[in-house]
């Protein structure tokens, strides 16, 4: 039996600085040796030697300054990127909570977008159809569900996205700073849903800059600083240390 949902062992991730060639094929062709050398020599270390374990059913917060490497960590968990060294084990299906409107098409209606988004995120068409009523009910969009989503406000888009996410098949949910939109009442609903998934035994990795949010949902917290793990532990402890460090920095 495997208790761990996610294991990072000495994981490092460096990004090649592709902008040397993104400049264009013309520049590349006219300066091939220079370009190749630039690609090889200029890599940017986004994560260095990161190790942690997340148990099944845990809700873990990830905090750190902008550019610390939080989104990179989630990208590695989701499998959209590979690490440069080290090893990553993920047990269970992963679903990301997408940012506002990602994967949506603005000309299609809310209902059409639900099917599109849910299938992209791993459901079969038959599964989406079974869950459609429930998804629409959760979104509270009422008659707007058959309007093209270009008429939606950002709060309504967030509702649509979260409603889809709440009905996916996954064991691991990744949330990267996306819960800041929508009205109070719907935000509360989102948190309730997250707490409910937690109760149901989901593993959740939660990136946020809002310490109250982190305190509300997370059992443990990973603090990433300078591209490596600064501290892992009980939520309260890590947050206190983090806040103190922020104050000292000015």
């Amino acid at each position: 039996m495997n208790e761990n949902a996610i294991v990072f062992e000495k994981v490092s991730k460096s990004y090649p600085l592709y902008h040397h060639i993104i400049g264009g094929i013309k520049r590349f062709i006219f300066n091939i040796p220079g370009a190749l050398k630039a690609i090889k020599s200029s890599r940017y270390d986004a994560l260095r030697d990161i190790s942690f374990e997340i148990k099944k059913g845990e809700t873990v917060g990830v905090i750190g300054r902008n550019g610390a490497g939080k989104s990179t960590t989630l990208g590695l968990i989701a499998g959209v990127m590979k690490c440069t060294s080290g090893s990553i084990t993920v047990n269970g299906r992963v679903a990301p909570l997408l940012e506002l409107g990602a994967g949506f098409n603005h000309e299609l209606t809310g209902r059409e977008n639900i099917i599109l988004n849910a299938v992209l995120l791993g459901l079969n068409i038959s599964e989406v159809k079974e869950r459609m009523t429930s998804i629409i009910a959760f979104s509270e969009l009422g008659d707007f569900i058959d309007q093209p989503i270009r008429v939606y406000s950002s709060g309504m888009l967030a509702r649509l996205g979260f409603s889809v996410a709440a009905h996916l098949n996954y064991e691991i949910l990744l949330v990267d700073e996306v819960l800041g939109v929508g009205d109070q009442q719907f935000q509360k609903k989102c948190y309730d849903k997250i707490l409910e998934s937690k109760q149901a035994g989901m593993t959740i990795v939660f990136v946020s800059h809002s310490m109250p949010e982190i305190e509300k949902v997370c059992g443990r917290v990973i603090w990433i600083e300078n591209h490596t793990v600064k501290q892992i532990g009980e939520t309260k402890q890590v947050i206190d240390a983090y806040i103190k460090a922020q104050e000292n920095h000015g």
Binding site: V94, P96, E99, A102, G103, L120, L121
Partner: peptide
Amino acid sequence: NASIIKKVNF
């Protein structure tokens, strides 16, 4: 399709 390619592994 950058926004989904960066987040979803399909």
